[in-house]
Design a protein around this nucleic acid. Sequence first.
DNA 1: CAGTGGTCTAGACCACTGG
DNA 2: CAGTGGTCTAGACCACTGG
Lengths: 233, 233
Amino acid sequence: MTIPRFAQIKEFLIGQIEQGVLMPGDQVPSENQLLEQFSVSRMTARRALQELSDEQILVRTQGLGTFVADSRPMSSLLEIRNIADEIGARGHQYSCELLFLDVIETSPQQAIDLSVPEQSQIFSSILLHCENGLPLQYEDRLVNPTLVPDYLKQNFLLQTPNAYLSKVAPMTEADHVVEALCVDKNIASALEIAEEQPCLKVGRRTWSKLGVVSFARLYYPGNRYRLGGHLNF
Amino acid sequence: MTIPRFAQIKEFLIGQIEQGVLMPGDQVPSENQLLEQFSVSRMTARRALQELSDEQILVRTQGLGTFVADSRPMSSLLEIRNIADEIGARGHQYSCELLFLDVIETSPQQAIDLSVPEQSQIFSSILLHCENGLPLQYEDRLVNPTLVPDYLKQNFLLQTPNAYLSKVAPMTEADHVVEALCVDKNIASALEIAEEQPCLKVGRRTWSKLGVVSFARLYYPGNRYRLGGHLNF
DNA sequence: CAGTGGTCTAGACCACTGG
DNA sequence: CAGTGGTCTAGACCACTGG
């Protein structure tokens, strides 16, 4: 029932990182420092650092020390990447248009998508993300107001919903459904494509520890976007 | 340069598993047995077992012992699943049609896809996989003849290429590219859809330890198939 | 050089499982 | 009960990094 000492040290370090006391790149206490601080043997202090390193939360280098890893790497496949970062990484210009942002009452399907009661009041946003001025992603998003009460107050032209949600309600799980389809007239005209043009639709439900945070339907013109992934077994 | 003792014990156990001396479910030597066998301290024997357990190759239970894990679990997302199994799991009837199976000479693009020299002789197969008689997947596959010399001799109506390749050249890595598009007349008519019908295309390159084994282009009618995935962070 | 992480020992006490 | 894995100690020697 008592928490093992090595686990206590891990929790201490994770706490420091989550509170921002230790930032990515910072050096964390060495085995010898933790040994004194927690009055444990070196093997125990070491185990805490080693396991956090195995979990890719820390990075260790012999002779140098132990450091906070840059960012927690995700599963490389269908990785949840911020569209603005993705476009930026290609060296292209990102821009964005806010098409809708308000409270709505859930339809039966939306209630299921977000795991809330029917006819709840929830937040909805629709954004159009562009690469070099050309529409790349139509983002239709539902947000749980209980978990993210300040959603409507954000300026999504400065920070994508994805980036904001990652900060206020860190993801612990995500679901994806990928399909190919033709979109309706509204979405087609927003994306500046013909109605017959095939689109990639990604449905993504994200969880934090407290429940379903958000459900997003992302539409991409089939001729401008592909999803990639790499798996290691 | 010398291999650490714990790593030697790991290699010994992995060897036993790969040679079939130890089968899934079998109990492996306990810490105390390894300790005597390799003349190491318990901490070192333990480390070998612990790391293999972390790697999901072994399963440990306090008081019971350490056992060979059932099978190495894969990344859950865009998991490489045998289409026949997938259809069977839905309780539906699987059937399959062989459209092509022969040696071809690579086009420049095909040479890149399979990482072989241009104008190499490679194996090519085209199959149509059906669910309850309705086409679900058009599989256009290139195979490296050096790594899989007996590919053309197989009967793919009894065993899918995917299942066969998994046996003779176990996958160590895979690449995916997913896109939405309209397919050409040939593929559309095979899939029994109109040419305007959006399709999901999955390009998948698979590696074994020796190199690129196969490159498959999988086409699914957009209205009959969706890709799903679940991520845990 | 002092400090770091990597490996390893020979003990200890404990909680748990099965017979 | 004997055997298992889980945690922990107080030492040791080593290879490596930077100053």
